[in-house]
Simulated scan of single mutants.
Amino acid sequence: MMEISSKFRYTLLALLELAKHHEQGELLLIEQIAFVQQIPERYLEQIFMSLRRSGLVYSRRGVKGGYLLSNPPEQITLLEILNCLEGVNSQQQCVDASQTIGNILIQEIWQEAMSSAMTVSEGYTLRDICYQQQQMQDCDSMYYI
């Protein structure tokens, strides 16, 4: 079974934190995000360099500096985030004449699985995940007498 990488998990948590503050236009410092989301600060700095280069976040230096999403959360998909971190896998693997039918079949099934995962990832935005997170927190905070 495929596991979610720590890099992707931390990136998504950091972006969700930015998404929560996006409407207010509030810039967040890496230290703030690291503390709230319990992410190693050094690792988060590297992640934010990639996010800035890819255009997913905007940064401002100085006393009132920090990071902000470049686009509204409803315009940023999971697929966009994955492509930022992992790069777009545009390489089509050629079928080698020496490959067995079994290997070819496995490759085709894997490509289909990856295509499905990409389709699902394209259907979720940061706004969707923030909403679901809020729903779960609301259910968690309910109490009964």
Rank of each mutant, 00 (worst) to 15 (best):
M118L: 07
G66Q: 08
S5I: 04
S59P: 00
N89T: 06
E80S: 09
E17I: 02
R60E: 15
F8T: 11
S5M: 09
F48K: 02
L51C: 05
L79A: 13
Q132A: 12
Q32G: 01
D140C: 07
M118S: 15
L56I: 15
M49V: 14
V88W: 10
Y144E: 09
F48G: 05
L126K: 11
E31G: 07
R60H: 03
N89D: 14
S5L: 10
L16A: 05
E23G: 04
Q92W: 10
T119Y: 03
L18P: 04
R61F: 02
Y43M: 10
L85V: 10
K20F: 03
R127H: 10
E74I: 00
Y124I: 05
I106W: 02
M49S: 05
L126M: 11
L56F: 02
Q32F: 03
E80Q: 15
D128A: 04
A113T: 12
A19C: 06
M142S: 13
I145C: 06
Q38F: 02
S115H: 13
Q135E: 14
V57D: 08
I33Y: 04
G55W: 09
L126D: 11
S141F: 05
D128C: 10
L78W: 09
Q32L: 01
Y10M: 05
A117N: 13
T119M: 08
L18A: 02
Q99N: 07
I129R: 04
I47K: 06
S116M: 09
S50I: 05
L44F: 11
S90A: 12
G25Q: 03
Q93P: 07
T119I: 06
W110F: 11
L13H: 12
I104P: 08
C139D: 12
Q111H: 14
R60Q: 14
L79D: 10
L82T: 07
Q134V: 02
L85G: 11
S90T: 11
E31K: 13
